[in-house]
Design a protein around this nucleic acid. Structure first.
Lengths: 156, 156
DNA sequence: TTAAATGCAAACCATTTGCATTCCT
DNA sequence: AGGAATGCAAATGGTTTGCATTTAA
């Protein structure tokens, strides 16, 4: 749970107006434990503010994203999901079952340097994600919302 | 460039019929250097086989994916892209500018084990992707098709 | 006051599905 | 022959855009 106020300030500082709908969206984003889709945020927001439209939520999320205040997730095929948090922190453990996301700080940056040398790429970004089943979900699999890909491969 | 014949055999072995359209799709996939969208594959295929519909390409790609013959990419927001190759090999360097993908084999698996211990997750999958600008594209940035996310953050 | 922000409806784009027709084996 | 595969058109679902109206600063 990120603190809303710093987000408000960043928004303000960047020249954005602090409207009711933006406040509501920021609140929802900061309150969310797991990454959620824009639609899902809208659903939450609608509970208190039925007047706010999805479009505005999309637009606000887009702003937050541009400001680097959101982590963006997109596992295969599924709609994009957002979670409050800095872009610099790209390392996550995603539960295939409930969508829970655990962050972890360590990352193999030396590899990055090595790769730059070997490939000539100028590396600007990376993403390291582990997917699996979190402790709570172990045993109750098979209803999960997302997967990295993976299926039987048999003709049906 | 993966060899088509092994793919044909896998398809056959799995009980799928080897139709013209599947051959054409497999050919296109194997010939592609970089990951491409289903639509892009269809465009290529259409050059020689205008009768083949996008839907069939989608369906074939889906089969190949299920059989673990494709790597799937999805950078923020963009349409999914596929490239021939095994699923077990999830490590890529993606150029934001031209979409070139370089594979690399090493991956920090020890981290996986550590994380399992610390978090209680049962980890089944991971993805490690670096993004940047490849040697060829350095200097001609700013037209690129994909990005991990990242923009100015200024109101326009 | 006034540019920025909103909401609605419509547009878009990628992907999926229903169904009648065609095709491998 | 007969189930599998195709193609079309239509449905879907997420996301974006145009535009007239409202609002924060």
């Amino acid at each position: 749970m990120t603190n809303e106020h710093s987000v408000f300030q960043t928004l303000k500082a960047a020249g954005y107006k602090l409207t009711l709908q933006r406040r509501a969206t920021v609140e929802a984003v900061c309150a969310a434990e797991n990454p959620m889709t824009p639609q899902a945020f809208h659903a939450v927001i609608s509970q208190n503010h039925p007047e706010i439209g999805v479009v505005t939520v999309y637009r606000t999320l887009d702003i937050l994203k541009r400001l680097g205040l959101l982590c963006q997730f997109q596992l295969d095929g599924t709609a994009q999901r957002f979670k409050a948090g800095s872009l610099e922190h790209h390392h996550h453990l995603v539960c295939r079952c409930c969508g829970e996301v655990v962050d972890f700080g360590r990352c193999p940056l030396e590899l990055e340097t090595t790769l730059e040398k070997e490939t000539g790429f100028r590396i600007t970004d990376h993403r390291l994600e582990f997917a699996g089943v979190c402790r709570a979900c172990q045993g109750k699999e098979n209803q999960g919302p997302q997967s990295f890909s993976g299926n039987t491969g048999e003709p049906e």
